[in-house]
Design a binder for these strands. Structure first.
Lengths: 136, 136
DNA sequence: TGTAATTCCTATTAAATCGATAGGAATAAT
DNA sequence: ATTATTCCTATCGATTTAATAGGAATTACA
């Protein structure tokens, strides 16, 4: 299942994208409207800023704003930052590959075979969806 | 990520399917060959038996065997038993639907929109893979 | 210049989940 | 009888997740 971190992060990005203008949006406003714990959201937005999706302005009238256009923000990238690997097992992960300690031979592993298909189909969805798409 | 329970369960089903004959296969044999904790595997096979994938024979020379042909065992069914919902959020789950406590309106939720696509593409993979397919 | 409002940062905690283990009961083969 | 197996329930330890706490730094503006 999707972590709440990812879910809230996506909702926050959507919220900011839907506002359209480039004025900073405050954590409190997002938290209130999306029914998210403000402190938890704070840490999520921090992550999104540090990974280059959001910019921030400090102090009074501060907040977060998108650095790129929503149409340029791919779900693959957002998901990898918030949720981590897209693959369901690390031995089929493109960006977070790790060998399984059990499995001596990936080629003959049935789980491997199945999970490659799942990875590819999921990747296909994330590659074809930008923040603009899901914000419509 | 996929739980080890699911991973081991799939490996065990594959192991049994690959043996071909209908002789009961013992937990110990599977655990040893697939490098799985025997006790943990025991509980997984129990689950698979209770949900109708495996039959068992008790006592000496006992073990587990497939109840249906590998070509009749769909990954959708196995995954739902071992891993639970295929959907990444319960509000898009076909078999385990639950409303999100935050989200007041699913139709306008960006996460919902994205996760429906992921669900459908994943489902598509699981529906087109049987135990026979992944055991090849 | 001071005050209020905000982000920034680190640390901690509470709860849930996961993977594994323990130990013995029941059953079947020989 | 003895041995080998599944069956069942309970529990534990580690990890992860979601949330909270508290204060530092920064900015707007009266």
């Amino acid at each position: 299942m999707l972590s709440k971190k990812t879910k809230y992060g996506l909702k926050a990005l959507t919220y900011i994208a839907r506002k359209g203008d480039n004025e900073p949006v405050q954590i409190g406003e997002i938290a209130k409207n999306e029914h998210i714990s403000q402190k938890f959201l704070e840490s999520i937005l921090l992550t999104l800023r540090k990974s280059g999706f959001l910019g921030s302005k400090k102090g009074k009238h501060g907040g977060y704003y998108l650095i790129k256009k929503p149409s340029e923000i791919l779900m693959t990238d957002v998901m990898r930052v918030l949720e981590g690997p897209i693959a369901l097992v690390s031995c089929v992960s493109l960006n977070f590959y790790e060998k399984c300690d059990d499995c001596p031979d990936e080629a003959s592993c049935s789980v491997h075979k199945l999970m490659i298909q799942v990875r590819d189909s999921t990747l296909n969805v994330f590659r074809h969806n930008t923040l603009e798409d899901i914000s419509k």
